[in-house]
């Protein structure tokens, strides 16, 4: 077990090294994605600031909490973009063209290989910027930051990172069964957009069930923010853990099932 973990960490390092040396060839892309993301954040922040001129809270959340919320999303999203995003987003293409074939023949977990082969080093600036944003929000709202809070927050961020990864892979894995999944991908993209723009506290009733449990994109930035700025009770913590575990496991099983149904295009 320990040997396996070390081996996969080494492999991860190797893949990251290769991607960095590759990206040096296209150094402009490295920065522009970051600048674009930051700009989007700025405009969203402005939008919320203007909205808060007319209200004090959105279902209990103040403006500083919204700032922490957006910072948290920037962290989770940046981590994902830097690691698994570009590998996963091209999975349907790899399935359609049969490019997955060579990857299956490698003596490494195929899900790992597909997820870890397209690092995007430029995106790691996202989490750095996100950390500053969170810190700014914490100061603006006078929230106390204890070491325990920080540790719990980081743990939750890690969990939400895994959740977002699983949800995205779950959608892309459908490409094993259907020729075209453009509509599903579009739905997924919209869901991510909402996860960024709408604080989870806004969800009520049926919408809450849909976005917190069924397709829990609503949890991603909300849960760590809630923990850091207001606190979670044990029940909420357990529910979030259960949902995350469920989707991580379900995705893993679904991917394996998809792989066993892979019919490899061409020839």
């Amino acid at each position: 077990m320990k040997g396996t973990i070390r081996r996969y960490l080494r492999l991860t390092g190797m893949l990251m090294k290769m991607k960095i040396s590759r990206d040096m060839v296209y150094s402009l892309n490295f920065w522009i994605a970051f600048v674009v993301d930051l700009l989007l954040f700025l405009f969203l922040l402005l939008s919320f600031t203007f909205v808060y001129r007319y209200t004090d809270s959105i279902n209990g959340w103040t403006l500083p909490q919204i700032i922490v919320f957006m910072g948290t999303f920037t962290i989770v999203d940046g981590l994902g973009m830097g690691t698994w995003f570009f590998g996963i987003i091209s999975l349907p293409e790899k399935i359609r063209t049969g490019a997955l074939d060579m990857r299956i023949t490698k003596p490494v977990d195929t899900q790992f290989l597909v997820s870890a082969e397209s690092f995007n080093p430029g995106s790691f600036l996202g989490p750095v910027a996100g950390a500053f944003i969170v810190r700014y929000g914490m100061k603006a709202g006078n929230f106390a930051l204890t070491p325990e809070k920080l540790a719990g927050y980081l743990l939750l961020v890690l969990m939400m990172y895994l959740l977002m990864y699983s949800l995205s892979l779950l959608v892309m894995t459908c490409a094993f069964f259907f020729v075209k999944i453009d509509a599903l991908i579009q739905a997924e993209e919209s869901a991510v957009e909402f996860a960024f723009r709408i604080p989870g506290t806004a969800f009520r009733g049926a919408a809450k069930f849909v976005f917190m449990v069924l397709i829990p994109y609503g949890l991603i930035a909300t849960v760590p923010t809630q923990f850091l700025t207001a606190g979670l009770n044990w029940g909420q913590g357990a529910a979030v853990t259960a949902i995350t575990l469920f989707f991580v496991t379900a995705t893993r099983l679904f991917f394996r099932f998809g792989l066993s149904r892979y019919s490899s295009a061409g020839g």
Binding site: M18, R22, G98, M102, T105
Partner: peptide, 19 residues
């Protein structure tokens, strides 16, 4: 098992194009 064989497909590459 996958360590015990090799496969070369003329149409599919395992090399990194830019490296």
């Amino acid at each position: 098992f996958r360590r015990s064989y090799a496969v070369v497909m003329g149409q599919k590459s395992q090399l990194w194009w830019d490296l």
